[in-house]
Nucleic acid binder design. Structure first.
Length: 213
DNA sequence: CGCATTTGACCTGCGC
DNA sequence: GCGCAGGTCAAATGCG
């Protein structure tokens, strides 16, 4: 399948960046009190993915509030943003992951109701971190873990917990350098970043108050 | 008690 | 057609 995503050794030939991926959230720099220079660097970098605007409209998925305070030295950047062909009509996600309950019929890596393929945006990047789970502002539920070939580290599968959101992400440590975590996002969030909105709430309230005058 | 995680089983696509 | 590998489901379990 997506061979470029398989195996740590085959990561696309994009050079490692000296900074983590540009953060979408304006809160990122405030959270990242340990590495303000990096926050500045994010502003300079032209993000290969669109940034989350501070509004309530559906936003392109991206690592919005990654906690970069973790001790990484060489971050990693998104080597690619691509349209990857995936099965469109998998029978999970939209149903809230509940499935039909028929274990023999409802399971499967890909949908059974058709072979039509569609494209989902994928964003992948490397980060050097001790934490596998990066705080990107969204809530994720782990739904699987799998040992992958040519890697001693398992790959974890997460799905956004938002009921109407079908964004998924995979997290795996590189075999060559276990200090590096490769995170692959698939799909686009159709809801605002929870933490971002949480943080912006006071500001919005204030703006609302001021707008009365 | 509700939600998240773990984990074995199962399904599909692909290469040979 | 067969086997392998990746991806997902869902019951069991853990945790706050």
């Amino acid at each position: 399948m997506d061979d470029h995503l398989h195996g740590d050794d085959t990561f696309p030939c994009f050079p490692y960046f000296s900074t983590p991926p540009p953060l979408a959230s304006p809160l990122a720099s405030s959270d990242d009190q340990h590495s303000p220079p990096l926050a500045a660097a994010f502003q300079l970098a032209s993000p290969p993915w669109p940034c989350n605007p501070p509004d309530l409209s559906p936003q392109p998925m991206l690592p919005a509030m990654v906690d970069w305070s973790s001790p990484f030295q060489t971050g990693l950047a998104v080597p690619w943003e691509e349209e990857t062909t995936v099965q469109a009509d998998r029978n999970y996600g939209e149903e809230g992951g509940s499935g039909s309950g028929d274990k023999l019929n409802a399971k499967g890596a890909t949908g059974r109701s058709g072979k039509k393929k569609t494209s989902k945006p994928r964003f992948a990047f490397h980060t050097r971190s001790e934490n596998d789970i990066l705080d990107d502002g969204y809530r994720w539920r782990k739904y699987g873990q799998k040992a992958v070939k040519n890697s001693c580290n398992p790959r974890s599968y997460y799905r956004c917990t938002h009921p109407t959101c079908n964004v998924k992400k995979q997290v795996q440590r590189l075999a060559k350098d276990t200090g590096i975590v490769m995170t692959t996002y698939e799909g686009v969030h159709n809801h605002p970043c929870e933490k971002l909105m949480e943080a912006l709430a006071p500001i919005l309230k204030q703006l609302q108050f001021l707008s009365q005058f």
